[in-house]
């Protein structure tokens, strides 16, 4: 697996196209200044990890990338965020169309109170991605397989998604997100409810996904960030303290704050 990562890293270095670029992003919740002038460039076909102590603004910044912050009433976002060179906060942009391209997996598993099948099929259905029933069946199976949950649920696809264990629910949610074939996948601590085996499977999945997608993942696990990401962003108190190649950030951080966080002295 190690070799694998290196080869992809080389691939990323040879083709460093920018998928998302953020410039001077500020986010306010009423009086809380949650994100302070963050600029970052997220490359395509790679995994970017957001790390930092609790409350530093990782989730907030992640939600800016698919405009989920729009649904939070007192949240104010300013600055530019471009997806493939297009401003996603442009008034002409329909956030619904954006979110079909930039999928999201939430920290707490949130399956719909419907069958497992309907959970995964929902996105393809509303976006008209399947030609017919068998096509949809194929999409659902593929998504569930890639989310490493197919074997556990293939015999009970019509059972309610809410009846699964927390970790299984989260993998169904991941399947639901990838079933709509997004270009970017945002994951907010997707493994916080998973056991080590499921975590390893998800990590494998993420590694696989980056061949086609850009993945942005928020994680509290330094090991996870080091294992699966090519780029790492360290947030602290709403600012982006350090952003660079994962290897560099973990072995040779520029900022002393980063170093103390990684070595476990703050956060």
């Amino acid at each position: 697996m190690n070799e694998n990562i290196i080869s992809h890293e080389e691939l990323a270095m040879t083709a460093p196209t920018i998928k998302i670029s953020a410039r001077n992003v500020d986010v306010h919740y009423d009086k809380t200044h949650a994100i302070r002038g963050v600029s970052a460039e997220i490359p395509s076909n790679s995994v970017t990890a957001f790390i930092g102590p609790s409350g530093c603004g990782k989730s907030t910044f992640l939600r800016c990338l698919n405009r989920m912050n729009d649904t939070i009433k007192n949240c104010q976002v300013s600055g530019d965020i471009m997806l493939d060179g297009e401003d996603i906060y442009d008034p002409k942009v329909d956030p619904v169309q954006l979110r079909a391209k930039v999928g999201m997996v939430f920290q707490k598993p949130n399956p719909f109170p419907k069958s497992i099948y309907d959970n995964v099929a929902y996105g393809p259905r509303i976006h008209g991605l399947a030609r017919d029933k068998s096509d949809l069946d194929g999409i659902v199976e593929q998504a569930l397989r890639r989310a490493a949950i197919w074997g556990e649920v293939k015999d009970r696809l019509s059972a309610p998604g809410t009846g699964l264990s927390g970790g299984q629910q989260q993998r169904v949610c991941i399947a639901r997100a990838i079933a709509t074939a997004p270009e970017v996948l945002l994951m907010d601590e997707p493994c916080s409810a998973l056991d080590p085996i499921a975590t390893a499977q998800i990590e494998e999945l993420i590694d696989e996904l980056r061949q086609n997608y850009s993945v942005v993942i928020v994680t509290h696990s330094m090991h996870q960030a080091a294992r699966i990401s090519q780029k790492t962003a360290f947030f602290h108190m709403g600012t982006l303290v350090e952003f660079g190649d994962t290897k560099t950030v973990f072995t040779n951080p520029r900022d002393p704050q980063t170093e103390s966080y990684i070595t476990g002295r703050i956060g």
Binding site: T71, V96, F106, P113, Y122, G123, R176
Partner: peptide, 23 residues
């Protein structure tokens, strides 16, 4: 209705109307 259900639907690209009617 828990807000997480609304986020889930919006997150896969459902419109507000679809979120409301479907979920």
């Amino acid at each position: 209705v828990p807000p997480s259900i609304r986020s889930a639907a919006l997150g896969v690209g459902a419109s507000k109307m679809q979120t409301t009617i479907h979920h």
